[in-house]
Amino acid sequence: MKFMMVVKASKDSEAGTMPSEQMDLMFAAMKKYNEELKKSGVLVSVGGLHPSSNGIRITYPVPGEPPTITEGPFPEVNELIAGYWFINVESREEAIKWAMRAPDPHGLGEGQIELRQVFE
């Protein structure tokens, strides 16, 4: 079963700011966690995303009408994605266990991970 662990954005991730000492600790914890995922054989892919200020949103307003393009940034920070992991596990419970082991993705007590199963 494949799952996507979605790291929700924060005001800091959208601004691209974080104190350097905190960033170093967070990156070290993430590197260790990613190595554990890789060593266990469940990691399919991992990545971080640029802030939405670099993003483009394509909206399909009405069937038959052309889509519209909106340049970022996008104001709904709690709706945005800052990064992800794709993992391949045996069960939903195993996916939850791996997600619970992840360090705070923002390192500031503001992190949030959404866990979603991928259609196969």
Results as ranks from 00 to 15, higher is better:
residue 1 M to R: 02
residue 5 M to A: 15
residue 6 V to H: 05
residue 6 V to D: 03
residue 6 V to C: 02
residue 7 V to Q: 01
residue 8 K to S: 06
residue 8 K to V: 14
residue 9 A to D: 07
residue 9 A to L: 09
residue 9 A to W: 01
residue 9 A to Q: 07
residue 9 A to M: 05
residue 10 S to T: 15
residue 12 D to I: 01
residue 15 A to V: 06
residue 16 G to E: 03
residue 16 G to K: 02
residue 17 T to L: 11
residue 18 M to H: 12
residue 18 M to L: 06
residue 19 P to K: 14
residue 21 E to P: 00
residue 22 Q to H: 08
residue 26 M to Q: 07
residue 27 F to I: 03
residue 27 F to E: 02
residue 27 F to A: 02
residue 29 A to P: 03
residue 29 A to Y: 01
residue 29 A to H: 07
residue 30 M to H: 13
residue 31 K to C: 05
residue 32 K to P: 00
residue 33 Y to H: 11
residue 33 Y to Q: 01
residue 33 Y to C: 02
residue 34 N to F: 00
residue 34 N to C: 00
residue 37 L to G: 00
residue 38 K to E: 01
residue 38 K to L: 00
residue 38 K to Q: 02
residue 39 K to S: 14
residue 39 K to M: 09
residue 40 S to Y: 07
residue 40 S to E: 13
residue 41 G to F: 10
residue 43 L to I: 01
residue 46 V to I: 13
residue 47 G to N: 12
residue 47 G to I: 13
residue 48 G to E: 03
residue 48 G to I: 04
residue 49 L to Y: 12
residue 50 H to Q: 14
residue 50 H to Y: 11
residue 51 P to K: 13
residue 51 P to L: 11
residue 51 P to F: 08
residue 52 S to V: 09
residue 56 I to K: 09
residue 56 I to M: 08
residue 57 R to N: 10
residue 57 R to S: 07
residue 58 I to G: 04
residue 59 T to Y: 07
residue 60 Y to C: 08
residue 60 Y to F: 12
residue 60 Y to H: 15
residue 62 V to A: 14
residue 64 G to C: 14
residue 64 G to L: 10
residue 66 P to I: 12
residue 67 P to R: 11
residue 68 T to E: 10
residue 70 T to Y: 02
residue 70 T to G: 02
residue 70 T to C: 03
residue 71 E to G: 04
residue 71 E to Y: 07
residue 74 F to H: 03
residue 74 F to K: 04
residue 75 P to F: 13
residue 75 P to S: 08
residue 76 E to I: 03
residue 77 V to N: 01
residue 80 L to P: 06
residue 82 A to E: 05
residue 85 W to M: 04
residue 85 W to Y: 14
residue 85 W to L: 05
residue 86 F to H: 14
residue 87 I to S: 00
residue 89 V to N: 03
residue 90 E to D: 14
residue 91 S to H: 07
residue 94 E to L: 12
residue 95 A to I: 08
residue 99 A to E: 13
residue 99 A to F: 02
residue 101 R to I: 04
residue 102 A to Y: 06
residue 103 P to W: 04
residue 108 L to W: 01
residue 109 G to Y: 08
residue 110 E to T: 10
residue 110 E to C: 12
residue 111 G to N: 01
residue 111 G to M: 05
residue 112 Q to W: 07
residue 113 I to Q: 09
residue 113 I to L: 11
residue 114 E to V: 09
residue 114 E to G: 12
residue 115 L to Y: 08
residue 117 Q to E: 12
residue 118 V to A: 10
residue 120 E to A: 10
residue 120 E to P: 02
